[in-house]
């Protein structure tokens, strides 16, 4: 009898062991998981609104190695609206919607309305490497948010595109403010800038290298601007990407070998005016020369864009302070256009 008791006690113990083992198998409950997701969602919601000047996403252009193209996003977490500034331009009232959705991979940051992000997804990879306007949220921290494009590109390709680490907009990024520092569509901005010889000097911060290039902004397109805006603007003529104001473009003549102010020019890349920025991305396929010149210029200055952080006018002297940033938003190039010696 005693033995039987002992044996049954022993068996019961054994069973308990196995049962507990099985329970061990499930360590995460659905409730906990929902909790984690909810926590991340809440964190994201809060953090997005915690940068008064917005967050920056640096996208990569195929035209440059070190220079990355900034997109600044200012979130209104009350109304789920977002304002975006990119070097490519700005929308009329500059507002768009965003949503925080859930996907099979967790929390999604979804730029649900047409914006700079959906536009970049649609454009050629020279403009940026964005492959979706929906992003998986990988991590949320006080100073950075890590997101990844949900799609990686074409149809039937794997999930998960490029990863971006958003950071808070640096205070000295004046170009990203609302105020337009240099709008060459306006007469007052054109004075001593358009049809004026100048020199572009660029300092490459990591190497200490300095470059001077003779420069001249020509009004060559002014007469045909309307028709170019309609048919030549790669954003406007592509409805899916058409989120920016109509562009302004001009010939930015250059003299690579003579880095001083002079009347001689070797080449004529085309510059387009973005939001407080100039960008040099070849876009007009029917004209091979313009295409090649612009491509050459972007590659030789190692950036497809130059933001304009300050314009200083003293009499007829004009200094346009420009910069280009690296992946983490640090200054990679600083420099200026100057129309006086």
């Amino acid at each position: 009898m005693k033995n039987i008791l002992k044996i049954s006690g022993f068996l019961a113990l054994l069973m308990v062991l196995f049962v507990s083992c099985e329970k061990d198998n499930i360590t995460t409950t659905v409730e906990e998981l929902v909790g984690t997701e909810k926590q991340m969602e809440a964190d994201l919601k809060q953090t997005l609104g915690k940068s008064a000047n917005g967050w920056v996403m640096m996208v990569k252009s195929t035209l440059a190695e070190t220079a990355y193209v900034p997109v600044v996003m200012q979130f209104d977490t009350i109304k789920n609206m977002v304002k975006m500034r990119s070097v490519y331009g700005s929308a009329v009232s500059n507002q768009s919607t965003y949503l925080i959705n859930k996907g099979v991979s967790g929390v999604l940051l979804n730029f649900s309305g047409g914006s700079a992000v959906s536009s970049l997804m649609r454009m050629d990879r020279k403009y940026g490497d964005v492959t979706d306007y929906v992003f998986k949220v990988l991590s949320v921290g006080a100073e950075s948010i890590k997101i990844q494009c949900l799609k990686s590109g074409e149809a039937y390709k794997k999930e998960g595109g490029p990863i971006y680490t958003l950071f808070k907009r640096p205070e000295n990024w004046k170009w990203a403010d609302d105020a337009l520092l240099l709008d060459l569509k306006k007469t007052e901005a054109r004075a001593n800038v358009i049809s004026t010889n100048s020199v572009l000097t660029l300092n490459y911060i990591p190497t200490g290298e300095k470059v001077s290039i003779g420069s001249h902004f020509g009004p060559g397109f002014d007469g045909v601007l309307n028709s170019w805006q309609l048919n030549g603007d790669p954003f406007y003529s592509n409805a899916s990407a058409n989120v920016f104001d109509k562009f302004y473009l001009f010939y930015a003549y250059v003299n690579y070998s003579k880095g001083t102010i002079s009347d001689d020019y070797e080449d004529y890349p085309v510059a387009r005016q973005g939001h407080n920025a100039l960008y040099f991305i070849p876009f007009y396929e029917r004209d091979a020369n313009t295409w090649a010149s612009t491509d050459k210029f972007a590659k030789s200055i190692k950036t497809p864009y130059l933001v304009i952080n300050e314009v200083i006018r003293t009499g007829t002297n004009v200094t346009i302070k420009v910069a280009s940033y690296d992946k983490s938003g640090k200054e990679y190039i600083t420099g200026e256009y100057r129309n006086f010696n």
Partner: peptide, 9 residues
């Protein structure tokens, strides 16, 4: 398939 949302305005 690829569709792009309209701008808010």
């Amino acid at each position: 398939d690829f569709y792009y949302p309209p701008t808010y305005d």
